[in-house]
Design a binder for these strands. Structure first.
Length: 584
RNA sequence: GGUCCCGUGGUGUAGCCUGGCCAAACACGCGGCCCUGUCAAGGCCGAGAACGCCGGUUCGAAUCCGGUCGGGACCGCCA
């Protein structure tokens, strides 16, 4: 018995009328009329109605009464047009049905822990535990197929532009830079470890030195960091590197790539080139470096208006070097106190000291003049409510960005169906970390802005970077930079980052050495396929676009990973486990 | 590292704030019977949870408190 070449359940159409077929699939639903029995038979391609009629085949009909959900069956029968009035326009196969003459139960099934239907909202942990059932849901299967088609379109496009896919190793050298590495013990080198790739960054730069010129790879990258709704441990990225290029070449390539993917896969024309915004302006106006342009809602800085204000909470923040930012909520005067409290909770959750608004509690602290100046700065209309946050600049931006997104969601301001691409460019080379230390903005291989070279030592924070992010509907779908290709400049940047000679040599010696053997100028970009798929499918949950995702605490609920290993295995790897001390 | 939300039959929810009327309600699903044109089929009947776990408060806890486990959202982090 081979059903491999059998017609797909979901592919039958009116034109198949009269065909004798054998179908293989899962019982999606059974409607037993005592006399007639209908089942919907499902496979990856969809579902078709099968009729068991005792008048036509009493044996098949008798067997069919034992069918239950998710049984795997083989049905022999004839494709027939449905009788007039019995067509189902809601099914792609709704014009036809298969009149069964033969039925074989290949495999029975327990009642699944949740219904295999798109609408049923099962608990996510349960879905993850039984992912193989979850993927049977048409929506999940379709998402995976869409992802496949996107990736195929990417391969075609990159190949068409003479990019060569080169595989890079999974077992790399660990670096304390960037995100936390996943490490793999070496059996043959006691006490030494490989690191799994956070990205093939250095390897693709070395491929440029190797003369490959145009490299790409659909690469898996692993970062041992805390998860979020839009982050998974194991990400897939389109990794690209090219020689003798400028930013403009990268922009053109990627704009063309997305335009092709959208056209080939979604049948949608997207306009190119994409608009650009520099990161500083983005943070000011949208409170984020990945603004969603499907709605307006601009943030305004009203610090200067309020320097002398009687409102002490606002003035206090300004006097300690902070800022006051505000946002007009369209028609927001109708918001309930409860709703505003929820927003305040959100702001506090993000680390804000509080949330102020008017009309409201702020009324008696602000002068008429202040209120009207703020309103015009925020572009507020008569029915609008003004939200204000006073804090350190970065905190205020984070909080306002969060509020902007929340307001857009709550007030349904997001224009669904729009594809708002943009480049955030340029960015800054360095940023300040939590402890006030200087660290890189993108990664340490990013080229400084040529005109800002003089500032490197004196005012590093003002140095722009030849780095860019491509943002789609508020999702950072790709980011990259033109790299440093000069050994001395690269060493200088490492030093500014606080690395001593010894460490530079140990960690990046191979790259610096390579730069002495004829290095082309180069640059590139990496596009997160997971986030891209989020934007395409309109989900806010990455796990929706990954076949077998892990939970927030890095667990695979289906496999039960991670799990302890055999002591013998540990011994072979020269590893001893020290359990965490329980504070008692 | 931190803040917050959630955890009740197979599934989704109600009940929890204002403890006793709750061995817990509803829908779907599940099992049986009836039914020849349904497609979320329909009708009738039925089974199924001591309320994540541990401890505390109380005459009495699904309900209050503490802890713990699991899931999620966010801040930090993620070059």
């Amino acid at each position: 018995m081979s059903g491999f070449s059998a017609p797909h359940c979901g592919s039958l159409r009116g034109s198949d009328e009269g065909r004798e077929v054998e179908l293989y699939g899962w019982v999606a639903r059974r409607r037993d009329h005592g006399g007639l029995i209908f089942i919907d038979l499902r496979d990856r391609w969809g579902a078709v109605q099968v009729v068991f009629n005792p008048a036509q085949s009493p044996k098949a009909h008798e067997k069919a009464s034992d069918l239950r959900s998710e049984y795997v069956v083989r049905v022999g029968g004839k494709v027939a047009r449905r009788r007039a009035g019995a067509e189902n326009p809601r099914m792609a196969t709704g014009e036809v049905e298969v009149v069964a003459s033969d039925l074989e139960v290949i495999s029975v099934a327990r009642t699944p822990p949740f219904a295999i239907e798109d609408e049923v909202e099962a608990d996510e942990a349960l879905r993850l535990k039984y992912r193989y059932l979850d993927i049977r849901r048409p929506k999940m299967a379709q998402t995976l197929e869409l992802r496949h088609r996107v990736v195929q379109a990417i391969h075609r496009y990159m190949d068409g532009h003479e990019f060569m896919e080169v595989e890079t190793p999974m077992l790399l050298k660990g670096t304390p830079e960037g995100s936390r590495d996943f490490i793999v013990p070496s059996r043959l080198h006691p006490g030494e470890f490989f690191a799994l790739p956070q990205s093939p960054q250095q390897l693709k730069q070395l491929l440029m030195v190797a003369g490959i010129g145009r490299y790409y790879q659909i690469a898996r990258c692993l970062r041992d960091e805390d998860l979020r709704a839009d982050r998974v441990v194991e990400i897939t990225q389109l990794d690209v590197e090219m020689s003798f290029c400028t930013e403009e070449d990268v922009f053109t390539l990627i704009e063309g790539l997305w335009a092709t993917v959208w056209k080939d896969v979604l049948g949608i024309e997207i306009p190119t080139p994409f608009p650009r915004i520099d990161v500083q302006e983005s943070l000011l106006r949208y409170g984020t470096d990945k603004p969603d342009m499907r709605y307006e809602l601009e943030i305004a800085d009203v610090s200067d208006i309020l320097r002398q204000t009687r409102a002490s909470v606002l003035r206090g923040a300004l006097e300690t070097g902070g800022v006051v930012r505000c946002l007009a909520v369209p028609g927001g005067r109708d918001m309930s106190r409860r709703e505003l409290d929820e927003l305040a909770l959100l702001a506090k959750g993000a680390g804000a000291k509080g949330l102020a608004w008017f009309p409201g509690p702020l009324d008696r602290h602000l002068s008429e003049g202040e209120m009207s100046t703020i309103k015009s700065a925020a572009g507020a209309g008569a029915e609008d409510l003004i939200l204000l946050v006073a804090d350190r600049r970065r905190k205020a931006e984070t909080v306002m960005g969060l509020l902007r997104r929340e307001i857009a969601r709550r007030r349904k301001l997001i224009r669904q169906g729009e594809w708002k691409f943009l480049w955030v460019y340029p960015m800054y080379l360095f940023q300040e970390d939590d402890l006030g230390n200087l660290t890189y903005g993108h990664h340490p291989f990013t080229s400084p802005w040529p005109e800002d070279m003089d500032l490197l030592t004196e005012r590093p924070y003002d140095v722009r970077a030849r780095a860019y992010d491509c943002v789609l509907n508020g999702v950072e779908v790709s980011g990259g930079s033109i790299r440093i290709h000069d050994r001395e400049l690269q060493e200088r940047v490492f030093e500014i980052l606080g690395m001593d000679r010894e460490r530079i040599r140990a960690q990046f010696g191979h790259l610096l050495d390579a730069f002495e053997y004829g290095v082309p100028p180069h640059g590139g970009i990496a596009a997160g396929i997971d986030r891209l798929m989020m934007a395409i499918t309109g989900t806010e949950n990455v796990r929706d676009v990954v076949a077998f995702p892990k939970t927030q605490s890095h667990q695979d609920l289906m496999l039960g990973a991670p799990s302890p290993v055999d002591p013998q295995q540990l011994e072979e790897l020269h590893i001893r486990v020290v359990p965490p001390q329980k504070p008692s």
